[in-house]
Nucleic acid binder design. Structure first.
Lengths: 243, 243
DNA sequence: CGTATAGTTGATGTCGTTCAAACCAAGTGG
DNA sequence: CCACTTGGTTTGAACGACATCAACTATACG
C-alpha cells in the first residue's frame, strides 16, 4: 500500500525533478534589498507599466485579474524562488498580492534583459521559464475547460503536494491560501470548494487539519481523481493496482 | 451609429495594431518546402518529440489535448503566419490538426534556436512571441473561468473579427472551424454554441450566413456582450453611447 | 437525388451556483 | 471568566445555466 502510494506521487513529481528555471536568476535579484510585503498587500497592479520583475524570496503570492463587477480570476500562485512578470512586455496583465507575509526582491526589466543578454547561461534559462509558464497555463486551461469540481480540487492538491517545499511533513500539505483564493483559481465558488473537500474527507482521501493543512490519506486515489492519471488507472491499472 | 460601431471595434483592434512577432520568422521557414496538409489531417502529435517548429503558410490549424474518454480541449487556433511549437522544450504538449486545407513549413528546433541566437533581431522577436502566447493563454483562462456561454461566444467572434485576414469583407467574419471545434475551444457543448448563436441572431447582433460566415450587425453590442468592454458600457457609457 | 454529415431545436436532467443560516476559532473588552 | 464580535468556513435548500439525450432540418457530395 505504501509503495503504491509513493509510486503514484513519484509519477506526478517527475515534472518537478528538473530544478525550476526561475532559480537561475536568483543572483540578479540579490543586488536589491528584500522588501517585506504583509499578507493581503499588493506588489503590483494590472494596467501599470511593468518596469520591474519580482522574485518571491519568502511567502506565497497570487496573480489575479478582475473582470466586471466582482469576478476575480487567480491565474497563478507563486512560491519562494518564483519570478513574477517574466512573460510581460509593457504592462502588467495581472495584479499581484501577497497571500501570506512575503519577502520580495525586484530588478528593473531593462537591466534584467541586459543581464540575460550578457550571460550565455541565462538566455536558455529565460526561455525555459517562459516555456514552463506556457505549459502551466495549458494545464490550467484543460482544468477549467473540462474538469469537474472534484477533479479540479484533486489536481490542485496534487500540484501543491508535489511542489517540494523545504519543511514538508510526510503526507501533510500546506495550503497557504484561503478557500476564496482556491475557488477563484479553480473557477468555482467558495461553497463548492468547501463541499468538495468535505466529500473527499468523508471518503478518507484527504482530511483537513486546521484551515491550512491537508493530510493526504490516499495519494494514489487522489491522483486518479485528478483526471491526469493514465486512462486505465480506474480499475485495471497495472502499475498502480493493489497486490 | 456607424461611427459608434467602428469605435467599438477599433478599441478591440488596438492589441492587433502591432505586427505579430511571428511574422519576423518567415525567412527561416522559406528554406523548407511548403507541405500541403488536408483538412482534418494531423501535423504533429501530443507526446511526440518536438523536433520541429511549424509555420502556417495557408489555412487554419487547431491545437488540442485529449483527457480521458472523449474530452477534447482546443487550446488555440493558428492562422496564416503563426508559429506552432515555439513555447515547447522537448515534447509536443498538444496535437496539431488542419482545420482547413493547409500549407505548412517547418524548421528543426535546433537550427531555429541557432538562427535566433545568431541574429540579434530574432531574439527579441522570439521573446515577444512567447509573451503574446502567454497573454493569449491568460485571456483564455479568464474566459473559461468566469464567462458565461454568451460572453464566450461574443469574445470568440470579436477575436475572429479583429484578426485582420487578407480578404476580409466589411462586417462579414469567416469562421473556418465547425461548431464542435468552437465548443471544444470555449469549454461548451456543440448544442450550447448553436443555441447561443441563434439567440444572438434573433437579437440582430450577429447573423450566420451559411455555416462558415457571420454577418456582424451590431459590433458595439457584440463587444459589450463579450465582457471585455469597460465596466460602464452597459447603459451609461460615455464613449459608446448612441447620439 | 439519395445518403451522409453538420447543424438546429426541444425536453429533460444535473452539477454547480446562489442565498441563507449555522458553525468555529481567535480575539476583545467588560 | 464569559459574553460578544469578527472573519473564515461549513452546511442546507432552491434555483438556474449548461449538459445530455433525442428528434428533426439543412447542407454537402457522390
Amino acid at each position: 500500500m505504501l509503495m503504491q502510494n509513493n509510486q503514484a506521487f513519484e509519477n506526478a513529481e517527475m515534472a518537478n525533478d528538473a530544478i525550476h528555471a526561475a532559480q537561475s536568476f536568483s543572483s540578479l535579484f540579490l543586488m536589491s534589498a528584500a522588501e517585506p510585503v504583509a499578507a493581503g498587500k499588493a506588489i503590483c497592479w494590472e494596467g501599470d507599466k511593468a518596469k520591474h520583475l519580482f522574485q518571491v524570496e519568502e511567502g506565497v503570492v497570487r496573480l489575479h485579474r478582475i473582470i466586471g463587477e466582482g469576478r476575480r480570476v487567480i491565474t497563478a500562485f507563486h512560491f519562494a524562488g518564483d519570478l513574477i512578470g517574466a512573460s510581460l512586455q509593457s504592462d502588467f496583465l495581472f495584479t499581484a498580492e501577497a497571500v501570506t507575509d512575503c519577502k520580495i526582491r525586484r530588478i528593473s526589466r531593462k537591466s534584467f534583459h541586459e543581464e540575460v543578454a550578457r550571460s550565455n547561461a541565462l538566455g536558455p534559462a529565460f526561455i525555459s521559464l517562459l516555456c514552463e509558464e506556457a505549459a502551466a497555463a495549458h494545464e490550467q486551461m484543460v482544468l477549467l475547460s473540462k474538469k469537474n469540481a472534484e477533479e479540479r480540487l484533486c489536481s490542485f492538491i496534487v500540484k501543491l503536494a508535489t511542489r517540494r517545499h523545504p519543511q514538508a511533513r510526510q503526507g501533510l500539505v500546506r495550503v497557504p491560501m484561503n478557500r476564496q483564493d482556491i475557488a477563484d483559481h479553480l473557477g468555482l465558488t467558495i461553497e463548492t470548494v468547501s463541499r468538495t473537500i468535505s466529500k473527499l474527507a468523508s471518503r478518507n482521501i484527504v482530511v483537513p487539519e486546521g484551515r491550512h493543512d491537508l493530510r493526504i490519506v490516499n495519494p494514489a486515489r487522489l491522483v486518479q481523481l485528478s483526471g491526469d492519471a493514465d486512462d486505465f488507472s480506474g480499475n485495471s491499472c497495472h502499475r498502480v493496482k493493489l497486490h
